[in-house]
Structures are given as C-alpha cells and as structure tokens.
Design a binder for these strands. Sequence first.
DNA 1: GTGAGTCGCTTTTGATTTGCAAGTGATTTT
DNA 2: AAAATCACTTGCAAATCAAAAGCGACTCAC
Lengths: 140, 140
Amino acid sequence: MEWQGCPVRYAAGIFGDKWSFVLLRDVLLHGKRYYGDFLASEEGISTNVLASRLADLEASGMLTRHQDPEKRSRVFYLPTRKARDLLPALLAMMVWSVDHDPDTKAPESFAPFVKQDMARAVRWYEAQIDKANAPLLDKL
Amino acid sequence: MEWQGCPVRYAAGIFGDKWSFVLLRDVLLHGKRYYGDFLASEEGISTNVLASRLADLEASGMLTRHQDPEKRSRVFYLPTRKARDLLPALLAMMVWSVDHDPDTKAPESFAPFVKQDMARAVRWYEAQIDKANAPLLDKL
DNA sequence: GTGAGTCGCTTTTGATTTGCAAGTGATTTT
DNA sequence: AAAATCACTTGCAAATCAAAAGCGACTCAC
C-alpha cells in the first residue's frame, strides 16, 4: 500500500495500530523502558508481537535500542525526539477520550490540566520523560 | 481484550486502525460523505473492509448513516459531534507528520497555520465540515 | 413495463497476520 | 556446574485481510 505523502497516512503507518499505540503510551507516559516492562503491561501483549512492534518503532525512528551495560542480557528502549514530539497529539487524543468515554478512569484533574495550557502540560510530561531516562543515560 | 478505562486504549479501540483512521480523515477533512466517495479514496479500501469499518464507526457514535431521500439506493454518512471533536487531535497528529516525514506532500502553509492558533484552525475546519454537510442536511 | 445499469453491501476464496505455547541461546546467579 | 533470567524465535491454529464475484434494491432509458 502507498502510505506516502499524506500526513494522516504517515501517522497511521507508524502508530495506526493498537499495539504500537500502547507501546508509545507506555514509553512516553508510564516511564517504561525495558523489554520486560512492556511485556508486563496489563493489556498482555505477546512476545512475538512485542518484538515485532519494537523493531518497527526502532526502524521508524521512534525508539533506540540499548543493551544494559550492567547486565548485558537486558535491553532497554529510549524514546527519540520524534517520539517525544508526539506528546501534543497524544495528549489531545487523551482529552478527547476523557470527554467522550463515559467509563474513563483518567483522574478528573487530567483534562482541565491539559486544556488550560497545552504547552505547559507538554513541558511537564517532557520533564517526566527526562526523569525516567536519567538513570539509563548515566549507564551509557 | 479489555479496552476499558485508559484513554489511550479507548482512542486505540476507535481509530487505532489504519482504515478507520483514513475514513475519519476523509469525512472530517475531505468532505466525503457517500459510500462511493470513501470507496474511491486513493488508498483503495476493499468493499468488505469499508462496510465493516463504517458499521464500527456508526456503532461507536462517530458517524450517522442516512439514506439519500432523492435516490434511495444511495447512502451517506455524517460525522457526529464526537467525531468533529477529534479535530484538535487529528490536526496535532498531522503537524507531527509534516514535521517528521521528509516526503510529506502537505502544503507548506499547513503546519504554520495550525501551530500559530490551533483554536482558529479548528474553527476553520469545522466551518468546512458544515459546508460539506449543508446540502445533505437540507434533504433530510 | 422491461432490461440494463448503479449502488451498497455480503459472500467466497485464498493469503497474510495474529495470539498462544513452547523453544533457544546468551548471559547471570547460586 | 546447574539453574534461572532475559530477549527474543519458531511452529501452529485461528482470526483477519484483500480481491473478486454475487446479490437485492433501486433507478433510468426507452
């Protein structure tokens, strides 16, 4: 299929897929970095799909793969700038979900926080990402 | 799978799928309304998938289905408020794609227009949607 | 009013992708 | 040295997909 040129198709090609979407959420919002962290997500991704999606996301420049130098059998993934730049879109989507899903479990404070000042919300989540990255960056 | 509670999973359940994504683009941004319009999109969706996705989007409250009263063999679909509320997220995603896809074919003016004032951009696209709806709403 | 389209699906038929379970091989740990 | 951990791979049945043909309800030309 031709996924070239159109911005919506480009986005769909990279995360227009349940599992890629959930992995990006985990790495951007939940501070997950290790293969095992992703595997343990409550959605229960299977190992073959996880390996395949991580490879896809690495290939499309969303994640970088690293061996843990302290324990070389472990592997972690860091979000690139390209992935981090998804935050505004991701937060906007989440606000939409909170507004339209009667069963949402997001905290009441989330939507107002983002709606009031998106730029500030993005900065806050960027800081969280830096915090999650820090101990791993020290190792490299 | 349990798609309940988490806003990202909610969004993924509704448009975390290439074809739903493309259909929402067509109805929100390209003024497509008729079954035949969607079928003719350059991506070449097959009829069984199109019928299935339209039914899904209707079931999740994104589209409403209508028979054309002037020619009852034709059918059109209108975006609901819930679908229209996706505009901010959709535009944010498109800006991200334009920023990161070296082969993007979006006009140069698009990203600055949205970045400069998102609220204004949303209003502009809402007006386009109203324009596309108008002739059909007259019929009903 | 009849026959030839048009339109919006549905069905059928393979091919691809998925989820699950069971490996595998490279490290650590004991 | 043996056992456990970890990040995948592999094999397979089941679900999903695309492509093509079929179908019934219209609509239009004559």
